[in-house]
Amino acid sequence: MNVIETSKLSKFYGKERGIENLDMQVNEGEIFGFIGPNGAGKSTTIRTILSIVHPTSGSASIFGKDVTKYGPEIREEIGYLPSEIFYYENMKAIDLLRYSASFYKKPKNHMEHRIQTLAKLLELNLDKKIDDLSFGNRKKVGIIQGLLHEPKLIILDEPTGGLDPLIQQKFFNLIQQENKRGASVLFSSHILGEVQRLCDRVGIIKEGKMIKVEKISDLLEKSTKRFKLTTKGKADKAVLLNITGISELVYNGNDINFLFRGHLRDITKAIAKLDLVNLDVNEPDLEEIFLHYYR
């Protein structure tokens, strides 16, 4: 069964496009990456399936139930971390979390226990006022708020912003644990790296449309990487001449710059012939993916 299923889902704000004819399926038990640049429509999709905004046309269902008809029932089993941090004035973190728990039918003491455990794990002081918390700590409150009722579906909208690498790692582990427990996850991000680490499949959204859905393993195999080489002395241009998968090749003194898409074995074999001083291989940013991978 698909946990999330949208069919020709469109949302326009007046004439402004949010999403257009978006089809998406998230399978039960998977971590689905939802990736695209800012303004592509990730948040709009999420807010539409949560019924925070209403679709202009098309439909969406969660757990097989239409989101506009069964909103409250569906949301009982959803944990959502919004991209925008939020806080009620003058509320302590623990008050907000208890308020959040009060909406769910799960046993109260169980959720209370979850709050304490998660706070300990993420190193969050629950007695502080949310106003006084840093951006990253507020994000932690958001994470706990989204997980305290052990939802069947976790929706994360750009969750890692503001978290330091250590906490980020703990957060990823947490999500993986929840996933093992049986929760499905929709993970929206504009950073390819974190999606690659966590997700089984990834959907790429561009200008409101889902342009590609791919398994991470396929994506990695086919992914483009940016190479920056520095050679000792002038490089022999013949070395890189006939290798398929190279694009945007630029020689600049002793520096060589290019994008490569294909088997890494082929390219490493070739550059082994060069007298290298420095070698830098990077994930291309999303723009580059869009430009080169989906040309």
Partner: peptide, 17 residues
Amino acid sequence: TDKTADFLLSKPVSRSR
């Protein structure tokens, strides 16, 4: 204004409630 609407509306409550 406090950006808490997403918090509240993602809870299992209806708008009318």
